[in-house]
Amino acid sequence: MTTDTQQLNELERAYIVLTQKGLPICSQPYHWLAEQLKITVDQTLDITSDLISRGIIRRIAAVPNHYKLGYILNGMTTWDIKDDKAIEYGKKIGELPFVSHCYLRPRHLPNWHYNLFAMIHGRNTQEVQHYQDQIKELLKDVLQTHQGKSQDVLTSTRILKKTGLRLKVRN
């Protein structure tokens, strides 16, 4: 595991618990938060910036509903790339705007030889194909072939279960 659980202090834990469901939609949302935390607005902004710099908060943003914006197709693309280049090239793929998740995962030989996973989203099949082609082009120097294949796309045919992952705030 590369992501370690970061040490959080009492105040940071309280911050997370209060904002897990979101921030209030008002002119000064951090004023509300400062009041709840019984600290100043400046301190609240400082904690926010610090949590961002430590990677605990990715950003303060809105999460769109993919489907309602027309992004109805998702494909889990999987690639077999050279291990010694995996981190360098994985980073490039993660930076593509149409990739929502990007991971290195263990191979399970002989049946599963892909190590790079990139989830892509598109509005139609041409768009998804185009994105796949872009990834392939970026990876062309590090792709490996196993039993005649170096990539696969696993499109989802059915959602069987979808519940939010609960963010656990531990003591």
């Binding site: 469901k21 990715r58 656990k168």
Partner: peptide, 18 residues
Amino acid sequence: GLLTRFGPMFDAACLGGA
């Protein structure tokens, strides 16, 4: 429902859990 949430986006793995 066009947007599902607004606020800090947390890295779930940083918060503990596997």
